[in-house]
Nucleic acid binder design. Structure first.
Lengths: 230, 230
DNA sequence: CGCTTCCTTGAGAGCAGTCAACCTTTGTGG
DNA sequence: CCACAAAGGTTGACTGCTCTCAAGGAAGCG
């Protein structure tokens, strides 16, 4: 599935210092963490951790993209909470809760490399370094606000609105976008692939977007905005 | 609407030290905050802050209960995110985001008293006191996990399951519970009062609960659990 | 070319939401 | 004590959105 290897502490320190979370922390603190870091390689589709697993590690993406998602109990339903790219932290939250389990799953969207840090080490370093603690607080606060926005999005909007907003965000008028699979879109919109297909078709027929193969371009921005607004 | 008054710093310090957030912090740090604290009195229904207001203050509940909820854009729809009672913090998150606005609203469920602390002062003290920073991190992490559980609840369960779980949680078998209004229940379940009425009626007719006036008691625990489980 | 995967489309079912009417309870003032 | 009003609760009929199932078509890859 995936592979863990040692990594020079200089390289790890370099990566950590670039990360959003650790860039504010003193070099010495980062160095201490870096010595303990390992680099793990993921292939597209590999799962970094499953929802419910004991939260033992914190990860920093080095390359590639991960998706963090929640899975419905029995069904196949999946909702994407967040995408994490280079320099971003994954699973920061669970690590700071006692005896926590991951409350979501993380998987690689493409081949990726992640630095793994043990929860214990991170907590210890954070307790030592006020600057690092500040950075963690700022990160959590930001993530929390993002999550609340997602709440609004998923609870108060119908599918037309969610899809319209997704298109406006990812394919700003004037640009073009190669769509991922309908399944992946569905996971972002909290729906099923069939509905994505239908709605895209409707938008096309109504002249809101142009659609060629899987390439989409916004034609009628105003229409999409009015769908996304209310 | 509501009333702000000075409060002796000894009393404020005492309250703060009892709060979940500040109990781990050094006395000197708490004292500094307490000098700046004011006590605000709310009457049932008063709104402490509205979603979208600039996030200028952090609040610690002294007495009474507040509900933190999100409101749908135009409609009347409301979803309760969290209830905060004595010693609990309200709006901790927004205060640590730059130029943030409250991402939810807070209102008093009953007459209440809250200590108000300026965002600036809290951020400053947190930067000074590592122990306080640790407490903030632990609090945020816990809140984040709670929010993700709410996600599951609202996105992956139908109304029967949500109501069943709410009943099991608030009226453990053997105990009895006086229900709030259907509107309030609806806000917890992300639905409308009519549906709450209907579902409670169904549960009663099926013999899952006993219902007299507004007093409910669980009769068939297994049935409710099986509704809440899948 | 055949396999697999994904996309598309139709038909139908179910849950949730809306609207409107009516009923119950509560509290107030005459 | 009654009359009344206001707030909340209940119920029925109806609509609409989303999901499911199933069949068939297009695209990518060996």
């Amino acid at each position: 599935m995936c592979h863990t290897s040692g990594v020079s502490s200089e390289r790890a320190a370099h990566l950590l210092r670039l990360s959003a979370l650790f860039q504010a922390a003193p070099a010495a603190d980062v160095q201490a963490l870096a010595e303990l870091a390992r680099l793990r390689t993921l292939r597209r589709g590999d799962v970094l951790f499953h929802q419910g697993d004991a939260a033992t590690h914190l990860y920093v993406v080095e390359s590639g993209w991960l998706k963090v998602s929640k899975l419905a109990a029995h069904g196949q339903r999946e909702v994407v909470l967040h995408l994490s790219g280079p320099r971003q932290m994954v699973s920061g939250v669970s690590v700071f809760v006692d005896n926590a389990r991951y409350s979501a799953s993380a998987a690689a969207l493409e081949d990726a490399g992640v630095l793994t840090l043990s929860a214990e080490a991170v907590r210890h370093q954070t307790a030592q370094s006020p600057a690092l603690a500040q950075a963690v607080i700022a990160h959590f606060a930001k993530r929390h606000v993002e999550l609340l926005e997602r709440f609004d999005d998923l609870l108060f909007s119908d599918l037309n609105a969610r899809l319209a907003r997704l298109l406006l965000e990812h394919a700003p008028p004037g640009t073009t976008l190669l769509l991922p699979t309908n399944s992946e879109l569905a996971a972002h919109l909290n729906t099923v692939p069939e509905l994505v297909s239908r709605k895209l078709g409707e938008f096309y027929r109504q002249g809101f977007i142009s659609l060629e193969r899987r390439t989409v371009r916004i034609v009628d921005e105003a229409a999409l905005r009015s769908l996304g607004g209310p």
